[in-house]
């Protein structure tokens, strides 16, 4: 019997890979890929008449397979379906780390799920507040409400933008360079950073177009996302590499922290490093870069 450790709200989430909860051959060894989080899907991947069976599959898999450090999140069915409440019960009873709310459109949606999660925690004797939440923003109204969604619950660790449905609502199609999603993506990043939670880019559906996938991943990093959703293990390596700090970024962060430590007692608030003016926000950012590099095992220095 597997009992997973208490989930961490703040952790590295560069990659979140979708897995069909109904397919045992996919679920059983999903931890071997080294993805940061897996999202077991009870929603779109599972046919309407297999929702019940998928829950038994999910429950028994989680109780018997050790996913180790891989975070386990479950995407539950929409709040407009008859399925989501039982989805919440099985998630909590199985001890998942977090629940992904599909098609989230308001803070009330988050609070509705939070209430059901709290009730299930009480029902199954699970530590109160253990189960984390994340929300997928897939509609214009969801994007417009991004900030209130990001601040709706202390359980909520982040939001993901989901482009498939959003493009249809916006009357646009996928364009090279992603110009059609630019406003929505930026708004999600802005809301998440304002609220102090993480944000994740949409998945790239076209597995044959590797160049498109790579360009979109790089753009997501440039826009400020923490990670990206995935549908295939072969996308993991590029995403991990893209969302990790570069060697140059790590070296610069190290230099900043060392200089800060040296200057600390001298009472100087602003000075230059490599000929460029630096002050307090630079050091906070440098600490974040080093913490991230340490967490993913690519920093071996002394700081």
């Amino acid at each position: 019997m597997i009992n997973r450790p208490t989930p961490k709200k703040v952790r590295i989430r560069r990659s979140m890979m979708f897995m069909n909860a109904q397919k045992p051959n996919l679920l059983k060894d999903a931890y071997i890929y080294g993805v940061d989080s897996i999202i077991m899907d009870l929603e779109d991947a599972v046919a309407e008449n297999q929702k019940d069976s998928a829950r038994f599959s999910l429950f028994n898999t989680l109780k018997n397979i050790d996913y180790g450090d891989t975070e386990v999140i479950v995407r539950i069915n929409g709040l407009d379906t008859p399925h989501w409440q039982e989805d919440v019960r099985v998630c909590v009873a199985a001890g998942v780390d977090g629940i992904r709310i599909a098609k989230c459109e308001s803070a009330d949606d988050v609070r509705t799920v939070e209430k059901a999660v709290a009730a299930a925690e009480a029902e199954f004797g699970v530590e109160s507040g253990r189960t984390l939440l994340m929300a997928a923003l897939e509609s214009p109204i969801g994007i417009m409400h991004a900030y209130e969604i990001c601040t709706a619950s202390t359980r909520l660790f982040g939001v993901a933008i989901s482009a498939g449905d959003l493009r249809k609502s916006l009357h646009v199609k996928s364009e090279p360079g992603g110009v059609e999603m630019f406003t929505a993506r930026s708004q999600v990043v802005m809301a998440a950073r304002a609220a102090g939670v993480q944000c994740f880019d949409t998945m790239w559906p076209n597995l044959d177009d590797e160049a498109g996938f790579e360009a979109e991943t790089i753009q997501a990093r440039q826009l400020g996302f923490d990670g990206k959703s995935l549908i295939n293990p072969r996308q993991i390596a590029f995403v991990h590499q893209t969302f990790a700090p570069t060697k140059a970024e790590i070296a610069y962060a190290e230099k900043l922290i060392r200089s800060f430590n040296a200057q600390q007692d001298s009472g100087i608030g602003v000075y230059t490093v490599d000929g460029k003016l630096v002050d307090v926000p630079f050091f906070d950012d440098a600490r974040r870069v080093l913490a991230q590099a340490k967490a993913i095992g690519i920093y071996h220095g002394e700081l």
Partner: peptide
């Protein structure tokens, strides 16, 4: 199938045969 998969399929079939598979399952 792994043991846990086999167990899941048996449980799902039994609950379905009793019309109780959709909600209110005593997961514990």
């Amino acid at each position: 199938a792994l043991d846990c998969t086999l167990k899941a399929r048996i449980e799902a079939a039994i609950y379905r045969s009793a019309d109780q598979s959709a909600a209110g399952i005593a997961w514990e």
